[in-house]
Design a protein around this nucleic acid. Structure first.
Length: 582
DNA sequence: GCCGTTTTCGGCCCGACTGTTTTCAGTCG
């Protein structure tokens, strides 16, 4: 059982306990554990198999350790089975409706015997929901609307799509009356692979006109709520946007607060309390002891900038990509925050396609585009023959491509064009190109495009076999996932990463917005194990070369510095490092 | 249920908005 599955089980326990009305702190304990497990880079099943003491991990106490071991060893969790028999699982879906939380879900269940969305819809249509205590006509109406459009509203957006909406929003809001500063916060700023909503933060003398300007944006489909400090709208695209207006003296505190993550903020506030301070979106305040021992807020000691807020609790500024409570506060405390890799550090792109296979641009166009981006080298990685539908290159065609590479190279002496190929890993783990040709390539990139649904054992063996081939340099988009479209392959990633390290093979951080493969958690694990990483765009056009920033963003979320990323090296050292096998 | 130079009990982050209420609970981020 993989970490994400363990986390899902713990989250479901939390959901069901919450509907039961359990102690909220107990519920939180399950959620904290689930969140930790989901983001933890080492598979817990391995630690369990080794008999390690899981209670040494944060958020895991005696009970959680027992449950995790049970899940790893049996695939089941008795506590969860029991809860499912006590609480109808359909209620969980009901709590996911906006405006319906555990309390109302429980009322619907106990008072009206409602256990799923369809029953709720019927009850609401019949007007029985509005009659419940704590509900009313408006709530009933909202519930109905939420059920009707449920499919559209749950989705998360690819980071690249969110970027487009964010840019348009920024342009509109920059023209709002009296707007001074304007920043996008939230998971967008932390560069998460998908974004659920956008948080826009502005400073303005008067909030009213700014809120009005915001709700008049043509892309707005519905104003969800509107106040003097916060307004929420839903766009025609389905994206929800929150606008907050704050005073300049609180801008940094608000930016921290709305950037999150929630867990990072909680740790920051706890840290503040330990120092006799209180952090809110309005600033960092002294806490004074009142007459009766109660604590009241004193003067504001920080708030205008993020740097100030962190400094107030004795920390350096922490890059947004790290704010996930994955050890960044501790690292900041020790003065060991990583100097994260930046787009400008990248010296070459190592996966791209041309018209020789399924790319849209010619080789010469791709070379000129790479040069324009300041790269010192690039790898031309058209597909191998078995991917017929992409126009994969057979040996004869490959040799003709080499001739063209040599011709084009003569015209572009400032960039090194590396002969390469994205070679398909066949079902049995063998490679879709003869050894004799592999030997003539500068860079050998391998990846899987077929039989994605094999079981974990077989799929893992297949990849390991490919990595053991002495000519292989890079494993591209290792899990094959496509966000929102295709689940990752069943793959024992820890085995794969260990094997990659053993054989000196680099793993790719594919920058395609719907791939981002490996993801941040796997890249973090690669870094821990000392596996080499390359960041590549997998470009199919010159424009795609600009996707590099999405790969870099995920690498940053994985704490990678330039020294972890091979394609930050100059050409000579890059090739040396790439070919160093162990 | 977790956690501890405020340790084995008693805490556990903070504020805005809405709707249903007559002073606040529920939900959300």
């Amino acid at each position: 059982m993989e970490n994400v599955e363990l986390a899902a089980a713990l989250d479901e326990v939390a959901d069901l306990l919450e509907i039961q009305g359990a102690n909220p702190f107990r519920v939180r304990a399950y959620r904290n554990a689930a969140r930790f497990v989901r983001g933890y880079s080492t598979p817990l099943r391995k630690l369990v198999a080794e008999g390690r003491d899981l209670t040494e991990l944060p958020t895991i106490g005696a009970d959680m350790a027992k449950y995790l071991a049970e899940l790893c060893q049996t695939g089941k969790l008795a506590v969860l089975e029991q809860l499912r028999s006590q609480v109808p699982p359909g209620l969980v879906e009901i709590t996911q409706l906006p405006g319906v939380g555990p309390k109302r879900a429980q009322a619907l269940w106990k008072e009206l015997q409602i256990t799923d969305l369809e029953q709720l819809r019927q009850a609401a249509l019949a007007g029985r929901v509005a009659a419940l205590r704590g509900f009313g006509d408006k709530t009933q109406q909202k519930i109905l609307q939420a059920i009707e459009r449920r499919a559209g509203q749950q989705k998360r957006f690819l980071l690249a799509d969110a970027d487009q909406i964010a840019a348009a929003l920024r342009e509109h809001m920059a023209q709002a009356p009296g707007v001074d500063r304007l920043e996008m916060a939230g998971s967008w700023r932390r560069r998460k692979e998908t974004v659920g909503d956008l948080d826009l933060l502005v400073t303005a003398a008067e909030p009213g006109p700014v809120m009005d300007h915001f709700t008049r944006w043509p892309s707005v489909a519905e104003v969800v709520q509107k106040g003097t400090t916060r307004t929420t709208v839903r766009l025609r695209s389905g994206m929800q946007v929150d606008l907050r207006v704050v005073e300049p003296a609180a801008f940094g505190a608000a930016l921290c607060y709305f950037t999150g993550s929630k867990e990072h903020n909680i740790r920051m506030r706890q840290r503040a309390l330990e120092r006799g301070l209180r952090i809110s979106e309005y600033g960092v305040f002294e806490l004074l002891e009142g007459e009766g021992g109660e604590r009241r807020e004193g003067r504001r000691v920080a708030g205008a900038t993020e740097q100030e807020v962190y400094a107030a609790v004795g920390l350096p500024w922490i890059p947004p990509e790290l704010r996930e409570d994955r050890g960044e506060l501790e690292a900041a405390e020790r003065g060991e925050l990583p100097a994260l890799v930046e787009l400008g550090d990248i010296r070459g792109d190592l996966q791209m396609h041309t018209r020789w296979s399924d790319g849209k641009n010619t080789l010469a166009e791709m070379v000129a585009a790479c040069l324009a981006r300041g790269y010192a080298y690039m790898a031309v990685t058209d597909h191998s023959p078995s991917l017929a539908m992409t126009g994969g290159l057979d040996p004869a065609k490959l040799r003709r491509q080499w001739q063209e590479i040599e011709r084009v190279a003569a015209d572009y002496p400032k960039i090194r064009i590396l002969k390469s190929m994205e070679i398909d890993i066949r079902r049995d783990g063998s490679l879709d190109l003869a050894d004799e040709l592999l030997e003539q390539l500068d860079v050998v990139l391998v990846s899987i495009h077929s039989y994605l649904e094999l079981g974990m054992a077989e799929q893992t063996r297949r990849v390991l076999k490919a990595l053991e081939h002495p000519r292989v340099h890079i494993l591209a988009h290792p899990t094959g996932r496509r966000l929102g479209q295709r689940e990752p392959m069943q793959l024992d990633m820890d085995e794969v990463l260990h094997c990659a390290r053993e054989h000196g093979v680099a793993v790719e951080a594919n920058a395609q917005p719907e791939r981002l493969d490996l993801n941040d958690v796997h890249l973090f694990r690669a870094r821990e194990l000392g596996v080499k990483v390359v960041i590549s765009t997998d470009a199919h056009s010159t424009a795609d070369l600009d996707l590099m920033r999405y790969g870099v963003a995920q690498a940053r979320r994985a704490w990678l510095t330039p020294k972890h990323v091979l394609n930050t090296l100059p050409p000579g050292r890059f090739l040396q490092a790439l070919r160093r096998r162990r």
